[in-house]
Design a protein around this nucleic acid. Structure first.
Length: 831
RNA sequence: GCCGACGUGGCGGAACUGGCAGACGCGAUAGACUUAGGAUCUAUUACCGCAAGGUGUGGAGGUUCGAGUCCUCUCGUCGGCACCA
């Protein structure tokens, strides 16, 4: 047995032993509390990068910690295996995406094993496996039956590079670019499949209170859903048509001096006068073309056209002109607004530009009633004027009063609007789960019967460089018989958004490929129910913040939909969430091949071993903060492991030092070591519990330094010394699993360190015998006292005033005031 | 524009409910051991100062016996949203 720390030898050895012993196999055990630890599954790009290590190894440490605390832990892994890169690779090489994908998965499994993580491989699931996606299709079918999935012709976002439509969540930034490839999206009018996530808008916001998620994510989801309370009010056109508007400020109804319709609003045609028709149609035409490019940035100057028509304001029967303008969107509210230029910034700008009346109906903070320089939109300060029955009402609370009044007079009603749009799941790509729908000439839209699932992807798809989905021109796939009437029919050739597959993978892991080869039924369970009852929901989820309003929103929606279908009996898929930060290149920039700042984890593992890489990544700083990779700083963690190795392997062989066993000096040293040990256990426990790995490691380093310095003293090989070394191994086990198990065995243990219980820190034993109390004069430290903990204040004050330094600084003067905080300080306030 | 997070040594970062700012690590300096050292060990390392001492947590105020921590304003960096009525 080599006596040198050689990770290259011990790490593969232990990984093999753990696997042989099936140490991390997760099976239900009603005797023990369960802990489902989940980390966002990787896309099988074929290369596991430092970012994966940064996301996964701390998650693993957390899972291992739970395990040592008596939990039955499930820590699975799988692959989000559908998606564009496989298809692009296929186009480039003329091979089928399945070939490329599975080769990559094989490669990544090897790389994942090198982390030394406690992956429950027998729970692995791969989303592009037909036995997986048949369930994705089953869910679609269930959603279709429940009215959650529907098809709609509407303007949608389209990425010209990825050649597919996108969900609203997948369009990012001011330039509205594709989340995947960065290309600005364009608008297209298409018939697409959507999920009714908007029906869950309220729950998605309100139930954020029930889960332990980072505030950041909660805020982002809340803003994304964008709930606003207000009222719907019915105006009338001259022709007598009802013209519904939504407003958050019904209290300003008396200040409406014109109305604005979205150019696409259905009433535009009927309200437009003959004189204005040409101008209105030209504007509509221009707006629809604008749509193709983009409907403009927020700070774009407002444009619009008068329709020549008028509407009646129901609160005061006034006739007000109707305009159309592209700052009003058909997709939000009713696509029509009442414009109150005095109290809305946008309406103010529009009214100013086109010379429309600005009528003040709320006084300023100082009671001002004169003309306005800018829109005054406070909801708190001012009172209503020029508002008929409401004159003199304070604006604070006016919204509610006016809404009640509208309801009583049947002019309007309280209403809620959301920014959230339904989830567009159609993708014009081949490498995804086919949408199980058939279009029949006679029966129309026909869902594929449950027993016919899965709709398989053809394995002879032909990829053409046009980027168009091969499913479109694959005759065998496309032309089918209608499942209902047997007549000629065509398959839907769009596939599902891959976020659909990842919305339920936490359930797939429970019993992967369950009911393999069996025909499905509507009342099936997609996983083994008893297993699901045991493991679900996820206790701890970890992953990147970039999914805040995509995956993390979708999977919450999905779970609520499943609950309503009776598949699950809980509301939220993940109880706790932690978002790790991003690991950056040594230059502080995002790692990228083009920048040349990529750190290859395989190379670093070759050089230092997986334990060092794991520990270094966790030592960099707070896990949610991320930070740059420092090629020098990793040496520090590596040195630490060498020093631990030295403490455990060398010093147990040292000859007993000269000091007499049991001497007073030895006894004091033993007590000091025990104290430090318990302090360390308490600190490390608290830190790992809260994912503060950096300070946990620092505490272990400090403790090892203590042991290192004590190597040649009388404490070596005492009972407490052996306890200290043993507990250090236990504390290191979650973060440094290989060296911990190796040294654990070298101490004579035969069972794995990963089967042991986490050490328990005793606050009594951790208590200091003597503490330093600072003595300040006017808040500046002038001397210190060493006293027993709990020394009473009067005693501290007496001792402090007797210190020669303090006497000198007080210079014979009287203290004005003396503040004593026991165990902390004495502050003498002079003059 | 709105919302949110963050600004601490040369660097990554510590600091519980306000109570010794800089734990731990990197780097640096000096020394030891070495044929050698980019290995290891020992010591020092916030800044100014020979010292006594003084100054320091982006900046300016404030509360307090006492502020990195609380409050107000301000500057900077990053992230999200952006004509949402």
């Amino acid at each position: 047995m080599s006596n040198k720390y050689s990770p290259a030898e011990i790490e593969p050895k232990w990984q093999q032993i753990w696997e042989e012993q099936q140490l991390y196999r997760a099976t239900e055990d009603p005797e023990r509390p369960k802990w489902y630890a989940l980390t966002m599954l990787p896309y099988p790009s074929g290369d596991l990068h430092t970012g994966h290590w940064y996301a996964y190894t701390p998650s693993d440490a957390g899972a291992r910690y739970r395990r040592m605390n008596g939990y039955n832990v499930l820590f699975p892994i799988g692959f989000d295996a559908f998606g564009l890169p496989a298809e692009n690779a296929a186009i480039k090489r003329g091979a089928h995406p399945v070939t490329w994908t599975y080769a990559n998965i094989e490669q990544m499994r090897t790389q994942l094993r090198r982390m030394g993580a406690m992956w429950a491989w027998e729970h692995e699931a791969v989303s592009c496996d037909p036995e997986y996606y048949k369930w994705s299709q089953w869910f679609f079918r269930k959603f279709y039956d429940a009215g959650i999935a529907y098809r709609e012709y509407a303007p949608v976002d389209f990425c010209p590079t990825c050649n597919t439509t996108l969900a609203r969540e997948q369009v990012w930034g001011d330039d509205r670019h594709c989340e995947r490839c960065g290309t600005p999206v364009i608008k297209k009018n298409l018939e697409q499949w959507k999920f009714r996530i908007t029906s869950y808008a309220d729950e998605l916001i309100d139930m954020l209170n029930n889960i332990d998620w980072p505030e950041r994510v909660k805020v982002m989801q809340t803003n994304w859903i964008g709930r606003s309370y207000g009222a719907e009010v019915t105006f009338r056109t001259e022709q007598g048509d009802a013209l519904e508007i939504f407003t958050t400020r019904p209290d300003t109804l008396w200040g409406a001096t014109f109305m604005v319709l979205a150019p696409e609003h259905p009433l535009v045609g009927s309200v437009t006068s003959d004189a204005q028709r040409a101008a209105v149609e030209a504007y509509q035409e221009q707006a629809s073309r604008m749509d193709e490019i983009q409907r403009g940035a927020a700070d774009k100057e407002k444009t619009g056209v008068f329709t020549g028509g008028y509407a009646i304001n129901p609160v005061n029967d006034e006739q007000i002109p109707i305009w159309i303008a592209d700052y009003v969107m058909m997709g939000y509210g009713t696509g029509a607004i009442m414009a109150v230029p005095a109290h809305d910034e946008r309406d103010f700008a529009f009214a100013t530009k086109y010379g429309l009346e600005i009528r003040r109906v709320i006084t300023g903070p100082d009671g001002a009633t004169g003309p306005l320089e800018a829109a005054y939109d406070s909801k708190d300060t001012g009172e209503m004027i020029n508002s008929g029955p409401f004159d003199g009402t304070p604006v604070k609370g006016a919204v509610g009063k006016v809404t009640e009044w509208l309801e009583a007079n049947e002019l309007g009603r309280g209403a809620v609007n959301y920014r959230l749009r339904d989830w567009l799941i159609s993708r014009q790509r081949m490498w995804g789960a086919p949408i199980p729908i058939v279009y029949c000439e006679t029966c129309g839209v026909v869902p594929v019967p449950y027993e016919d699932l899965p709709v398989l992807l053809p394995d002879d798809a032909e990829f053409k460089p046009t980027g168009e989905s091969p499913l479109k021109y694959h005759e065998g796939f496309r032309y089918v018989k209608c499942p209902t009437c047997g007549g000629d029919a065509e398959r839907e050739t769009d596939t599902m958004d891959t976020f659909m597959c990842s919305s339920w993978y936490q359930y797939a892991y429970i019993s992967p490929y369950w009911k393999s080869g069996e025909p499905l039924k509507a009342d099936d369970m997609p996983w083994e129910k008893e297993k699901g009852d045991y493991w679900l929901p996820v206790d701890q989820y970890t992953g990147g913040i970039e999914h805040a309003t995509m995956h993390l929103l979708y999977t919450r929606f999905f779970t609520k939909a499943l609950r309503d279908l009776g598949v699950v009996d809980f509301d939220e898929p993940m109880q706790r969430l932690f978002n790790q930060g991003m690991i950056l290149g040594p230059d502080g920039e995002k790692m990228s091949k083009s920048r040349g700042n990529v750190i290859n984890p395989d190379e670093v593992v070759d050089r230092y071993g997986a334990d060092t890489v794991r520990g270094y990544l966790m030592f960099i700083g707070p896990w949610d903060q991320g930070g740059p990779w420092d090629p020098q700083a990793i040496e520090g963690v590596h040195r630490f492991l060498h020093r631990v190795w030295a403490v455990v392997t060398e010093d147990v062989q040292l000859e007993k030092p000269l000091l007499d066993a049991g001497s007073a000096v030895d006894a004091a040293q033993e007590r000091a070591l025990e104290r430090k040990l318990h302090q360390t256990i308490l600190k490390v426990t608290d830190d790992i519990e809260n994912f503060r790995f950096n300070t946990a490691i620092a505490a272990m380093m400090e403790f090892n330094n203590t042991l290192y310095k004590a190597r040649e003293t009388g404490v070596v090989n005492t009972v407490i010394w052996n306890q200290a070394v043993r507990d250090l191994m236990l504390m290191m086990a979650p973060i440094f699993p290989h060296i911990a198990d190796e040294l654990w065995h070298r101490q004579g243990n035969t069972s794995s360190v990963h089967r042991q219980r986490w050490p328990i820190g005793d606050p009594e034993k951790a208590r200091e015998e003597e503490i330093i109390v600072v003595v300040q004069i006017n808040g500046k430290v002038r001397d210190k006292l060493a006293v027993a903990p709990g020394t009473p204040g009067e005693e501290l004050e007496r001792q402090a005033l007797a210190l020669s330094n303090i006497v000198k600084w007080m210079d014979g003067k009287q203290a004005r005031k003396i503040i004593v905080v026991p165990d902390k300080l004495v502050n003498i306030v002079m003059g």
